[in-house]
Amino acid sequence: MRNTEELLNLLTLEAAGEGNFTGVSKDIGSPNVFGGQVLAQSLNAAYRTAPEERSLHSLHAYFLEAGRLDIPITYNVQTIRDGGSFSTRRVTAHQEDKTIFILACSFHKQEEGYEHQMPMKRELKQPEELFSWTDMLDQFGDFLPQKMKDFLSIERPIDFKPVQVVNPFDKEDLPPVVDVWFKLKEPVTDIPLAIKQQVLTYISDYNILTACLYPNASQAHFGNTQMASLDHSMWFYRDFDFDDWMLFSIESPNSYGARGFACGNIYTRTGELVASVAQEGLMRPMRKQ
Rank of each mutant, 00 (worst) to 15 (best):
Glu172Gln: 14
Leu193Arg: 15
Gly113Ile: 09
Asn216Trp: 12
Ile80Cys: 12
Lys149Val: 03
Val166Ile: 15
Arg259Ser: 11
Asn32Thr: 10
Val33Met: 06
Ala217Ile: 07
Trp235Lys: 03
Asn224Trp: 07
Gly67Pro: 01
Ile208Asp: 12
His116Thr: 13
Lys185Glu: 01
Cys212Gly: 11
Ile102Met: 14
Gly67Glu: 05
Ala50Leu: 04
Glu280Phe: 03
Ile203Gln: 09
Ala275Thr: 08
Tyr267Glu: 07
Ala211Ser: 15
Glu53Ile: 04
Ala217Ser: 15
Gln197Lys: 14
Phe236Val: 04
Lys121Phe: 03
Thr225Gln: 08
Ile250Cys: 00
Gln164Ser: 14
Lys183Asn: 06
Val177Ile: 15
Arg238Cys: 03
Pro72Thr: 02
Asp97Asn: 15
Ser204Tyr: 02
Ala275Asn: 10
His60Ser: 12
Leu152Met: 13
Ala40Gly: 00
Gly29His: 00
Asp138Val: 07
Ser153Gln: 04
Pro72Tyr: 03
Gly264Cys: 03
Arg122His: 14
Gly257His: 13
Arg90Gln: 09
Asp82Lys: 03
Asn265His: 14
Ala45Pro: 01
Glu53Cys: 05
Ala45Glu: 00
Ala211Arg: 10
Leu193Met: 14
Thr88Leu: 08
Ala217Phe: 15
Ala104Thr: 15
Gln110Ala: 14
Leu8Ile: 09
Ile250Lys: 08
Thr79His: 12
Ile154Pro: 06
Gly29Tyr: 01
Asp231Leu: 08
Phe63Tyr: 07
Leu69Ala: 00
Gly17Val: 11
Phe182Lys: 00
Ala275His: 11
Gln279Thr: 03
Pro176Ala: 14
Glu186Thr: 00
Phe21Asp: 04
Lys183Trp: 01
Pro31Ser: 06
Gln219Ile: 13
Phe21Tyr: 15
Lys98Arg: 15
Glu115Val: 10
Asp97Glu: 15
Thr99Ser: 09
Pro119His: 11
Phe21Cys: 03
Asp135Val: 06
Asp173Phe: 02
His221Ala: 10
Ala66Gly: 04
Thr268Val: 00
Phe261Gln: 05
Arg54Asp: 01
Gly281Ser: 02
Glu52Leu: 12
Val277Lys: 05
Phe21Met: 06
Gln126Gly: 05
Ser218Gly: 11
Gly84Gln: 08
Pro253Glu: 01
His232Met: 05
Phe236Leu: 12
Ile80Gly: 04
Asp138Pro: 02
Glu96Lys: 05
Thr189Trp: 10
